[in-house]
Design a binder for these strands. Structure first.
Lengths: 217, 217
DNA sequence: GCGAAGTGGAGGTCGTTCCTCCGTTTACGT
DNA sequence: ACGTAAACGGAGGAACGACCTCCACTTCGC
């Protein structure tokens, strides 16, 4: 698309950057549900300019979040390379939630299909095998309780995301407290009660994500 | 208010019941954000009838949820009367979340100030001391890890509420799995890492609840 | 059977979002 | 330095959804 079109005029490309920057900030702060009007206003630019550069919101989101999603994959890879499998798992969970805390838009993107661009879905699917390896390694090392699986991690993430949404304004780091609590439950050890209910299957997870909508405006 | 007004005509009181019943069903299924129009339609009644009986949504909510909130208090009291303090705590958490799972409106009412009627707030405040006793008893029995307090329970509830919202349609009982996981973290025992970050203060919790809005339509 | 009480739903008001239209301004090649 | 294509901004139209009222009609109950 941008292969060899004629280049943008200077003011146009400056405004394009402004819009991107404004969108970055607002998405991070308030999630993906911010309106184009707000983004434009925050960028100090007319709405029309935003629409002229990006046909619709999704295009804007796509332009911004590819990089973020890539960071997420990188996190999974690093975690997998950690010496201690348990530390790797903890690093992945903590790092992932920290990313969500720093960028609410990312959370929306990770847990909801509603805004889903193809490439985002593909990246998300690419992470799955990494998570499975991470979990398998932790199991093999006897660090992770055997009755939790890879499909439990998104739920843990989801729960902590709720803590962020609820209390992020009051205590931005509070989620760490509940991550620690959950980790103490996830660790292998005695005094564990067998977990009831099977985790969601992949299909169920997908269905839940499709029906899921991020928080209200 | 209803002390000695003139009684409703038969059709009017029949319709009043229909509206209440419809509201009960819709609130339970979809949370407090259902519209008056939907309630009226579901009741097989005109919108005006709904408004005639209940000035606004809040009045309708109030009429319905006083009983529910009372159930919640009763649950806390029963839990406090349990022989085993840990079982009492588990019963309270499990029972409370089960109530939320059965009635999404209740969850909105418990965790948000947005719809708050005075009496609901008062009931909620009445439960707090009970929760504190419940926690104190569990601490005294050495069953609950010492670094969690009463202010952590709402957060546990919140996290499990998120599981319900996310996956309730796919697997209505899934929350029990994550409750079990959390309980394994909450139980006293060794292999516990000290929890980072202080729990929310009462004031912070209030502030978070005020800013909080239930899920999207 | 009559009057008061009650009814339903069409539709007005308001707020929100998305997006376009078009008169004006700006960049930049010549 | 000037003409033209490119870009601009923001007013405002279209679509929507929620809330609530108005009023011509029906029903109840004495």
């Amino acid at each position: 698309m941008s292969t060899s079109e004629r280049p943008l005029r200077r003011d146009a490309s400056r405004n394009r950057e402004r819009v991107l920057q404004a969108a970055r900030e607002l998405f991070a702060e308030r999630g993906l549900e911010v309106t184009m009007d707000e983004i434009a206003r925050h960028a100090g630019v007319g709405v029309a300019t935003a629409y002229r550069r990006f046909g619709h919101r999704d295009e804007l989101i796509g332009a911004l979040f590819e990089a973020r999603m890539h960071d997420y994959v990188a996190l999974a890879e690093e975690s997998l390379a950690a010496d201690d499998p348990w530390e790797g798992l903890v690093g992945f969970l903590g790092g992932g939630v920290a990313m969500q805390a720093a960028d609410r838009g990312l959370k929306d993107l990770l847990m909801s299909h509603s805004h889903s661009l193809e490439r985002v879905i593909r990246v998300r699917e690419g992470v799955l095998p990494l998570i499975e390896q991470l979990v398998a390694r932790a199991h093999a090392a006897g660090a992770l309780r055997p009755d939790v699986g890879a499909r439990d991690l998104p739920m843990v993430s989801l729960m902590l995301g709720q803590v962020i949404d609820f209390s992020g304004d009051q205590a931005p780091e509070l989620w760490r407290r509940y991550l620690a609590l959950l980790l103490d439950g996830l660790r292998a050890g005695d005094g564990r009660t067998p977990l009831p209910e099977a985790p969601l299957t992949t299909a169920q997870l997908d269905a839940a994500m499709s029906a899921w909508r991020p928080r209200r405006r």
